[in-house]
């Protein structure tokens, strides 16, 4: 247990300071959300209707930003070998990495999502619901990004591979999070159901993805 905590503390520190931290994905998401209105025009009704989907999409793309660094450096500098031979299993390491990625790198996404939703003209409760949807979706987004990052670790053009692997797997989260915002906006009463589905996807990813990541990492080490 102590070893697991030590790994989390270290990975959290490295993720928040060593590799750029939350600034990169946050800047990416902000930039995307600031540019969209310029592209689709100033009509407030259209912007409000587009907000849930655009914000969920921006968060999804932001979650891919740091995926390449999650395991790439560890493979090339020998850290992964050290972990593989340590008392901590690669499965536990993978779950810890994803947790550190969420809490050190991706945490601004719900905040940015809330502010952007308000700016796009959504009402407070709907923006809050969308933001909560992002909170529930972040673990799933991070785990799927991490899985893609593990598969692509050490591969040339890892970024391309990560986008191609992760994006299709993240589609359900995109649909559920956007669904939360849209349902809240239109008052269809389905926001709660979409929230639960987003949370359920994250839980399912937590139960499966760490094993997939560990298997991928093991393969990369051979």
């Amino acid at each position: 247990m102590k070893a697991l905590r030590a790994v989390f503390v270290r990975e959290w520190r490295l993720a928040s300071a060593g590799g750029g931290g939350p600034a990169g994905p946050a800047a990416f998401m902000l930039a995307a959300l600031a540019l969209v209105p310029l592209a689709i025009g100033p009509d407030p009704d259209i912007l409000r209707a587009a907000a849930p989907g655009v914000i969920a999409f921006a968060a999804l793309l932001a979650s891919l930003q740091g995926a390449e660094r999650m395991f790439g450096d560890d493979l090339s500098d020998g850290t992964l070998e050290l972990y593989a031979l340590s008392p901590v299993s690669l499965t536990a390491l993978s779950a810890i990495k994803a947790a550190a990625y969420v809490s050190a790198v991706l945490w601004p996404a719900p905040v940015i999502g809330f502010v952007a939703a308000m700016a796009y003209g959504m009402d407070g409760p709907s923006a809050g619901a969308l933001s909560l949807g992002l909170v529930l979706a972040l673990p799933g987004l991070a785990l799927v990004s991490g899985f893609a990052g593990a598969l692509a670790a050490g591969v040339k053009r890892a970024g391309l591979l990560i986008a191609l692997i992760a994006a299709p797997l993240q589609v359900p989260l995109l649909v559920f999070v956007a669904g939360v915002g849209r349902a809240a906006l239109e008052g269809t009463g389905l926001a709660g159901a979409n929230l639960m589905l987003a949370g359920a996807f994250s839980l399912a990813a937590l139960a499966l993805a760490p094993f997939g990541m560990a298997a991928a990492l093991k393969g990369r080490l051979e």
Binding site: R13, L14, G78, T79
Partner: peptide
């Protein structure tokens, strides 16, 4: 590899 991080 030394498994050391430059920022640590």
């Amino acid at each position: 590899g030394e498994a050391l991080k430059p920022s640590e």
